[in-house]
Design a binder for these strands. Structure first.
Lengths: 238, 238
DNA sequence: AAGTGGTCTAGACCACTGT
DNA sequence: CAGTGGTCTAGACCACTTC
């Protein structure tokens, strides 16, 4: 019967244009390719994709809802920038959300997930032992991301996972953040090891404490890397 | 000069149809008029407003982003319901966000705002003294809302304020929540008085503690009002 | 006055549903 | 296989900006 093919071949999903456009713009912004302050119009993007403006509008509205783009009346769309004060606020919100995620994760993480974490941490150790300092930062970025993935997924609260990543993305796209990350290089995996150990011991408060210190350090380094302009944001982090 | 009128009369803002439609649907959902599980199609709403489907689509997409509506492929739009487990999760997220807001507010609330709070609390006291128990719940709803408004605004973190209200709305639309509120009648203003006093003393931890207890009580009452079906959500609240 | 942005309309087209 | 939902197109229209 000819239904065989139809049923076994993976469904060729039709991806709406707005999705493609959304992902493209989002990727451009998060990669830092489209920097904060850059203006673009719906028509411009529509032309780029050889489509009409409706799907572009919808993609941009979604980005607006996520806080990555601002729609200025009669000006166009602008890649949204964050003031130092807003960055401090986002750090605080991240602390609140990620602490909660870690509390859940302490209770719910599986032995398999703990093994994965250990594997990632050991991998990093051998990498560090090589003393091959050529773009070390780049090389550590991937295991750090994988670790975080396991970590936050372990909380088993879909809504919370989504909120956590959304707020991390708001900050990660900044050039300054890459400086912060490279300055925190070693420390980042010390923290992750502490979290891992706390998970082993099922010690919620220890895990949270490690993570909060990590965020605190990250904020402090960002503050120091950002010069006097950012000083007024110091008191905005709680 | 004829620019006088043009410059002094408030600008007659053109409100996009999608805004009107969005606000209408949102209000219908939050008021409980459109209950969870109800299906509706874009075309249906377009007809209701005598417009085309495009603005309706955009309004519905916004509601989807906020989690009030789900778009089921080839079925239509459905008013999204929350499982007991999801409700527990939202309570936890609320605790994280609202605690942070209260921490900020403790530091930043102005004497004027404290006066407003006191006025609201005193108003409630005289209301309670009357012992006029006719739909007392209804009458206390408004001052409670006003108090919360002052409270959360005092944190001065726009993003946080928006997140707090968004998550409160996710729960408030449920019928069960009204039962919870009426069962908590007296206790609600006891809590608010505690928060107010903590603000006077600039005691952050006391304010947070009061609020967290309040949320905890609210969750417990909801659990008890919701029968056996909700029991599995007990361990989901952190 | 010309140009651009923002919104909406009307309708085409295809995929999927259900009888 | 008719019906409905989901998406996109092409273009109209008006408000605002800019020259």
């Amino acid at each position: 019967m000819e239904t065989f093919l139809k049923n076994t071949v993976p469904v060729m999903e039709f991806k709406p244009f707005r999705e493609t456009i959304y992902e493209y713009l989002r990727q451009q912004i998060l990669s830092g390719n489209l920097r904060a302050g850059i203006l673009f119009s719906d028509g411009e993007i529509a032309e780029l994709f050889k489509t009409s403006r409706t799907p572009v509008r919808e993609a941009v509205q979604k980005l607006e809802a996520e806080g990555l783009v601002e729609r200025l009346p009669m000006k166009g769309n602008i890649v949204k920038g964050l003031s130092p004060v807003e960055i401090a606020h986002i750090y605080s919100i991240r602390k609140a959300l990620e602490s909660l995620a870690i509390r859940y994760a302490t209770l719910r993480i599986t032995p398999e997930e703990l093994d994965t974490m250990k594997a990632i941490l050991d991998g990093v150790d051998t990498l560090l032992a090589l003393e091959d300092t050529d773009n070390l930062a780049e090389k550590l970025l991937q295991p750090a991301g994988e670790f975080n993935n396991v970590l936050f997924n372990a909380c088993r609260v879909p809504k919370l996972i989504q909120m956590v990543w959304q707020h991390r993305e708001l900050l990660d796209r900044y050039r300054t953040m890459r400086i912060v990350i490279s300055k925190q290089l070693g420390e980042r995996f010390v923290t992750r090891r502490r979290v891992y150990r706390a998970f082993l011991e099922k010690d919620m408060e220890k895990a949270v404490a490690a993570w909060e210190e990590h965020l605190e350090t990250s904020f402090r380094i960002w503050l120091e890397s950002s010069g006097l302009d950012a000083e007024k944001a110091r008191g905005e982090y709680l």
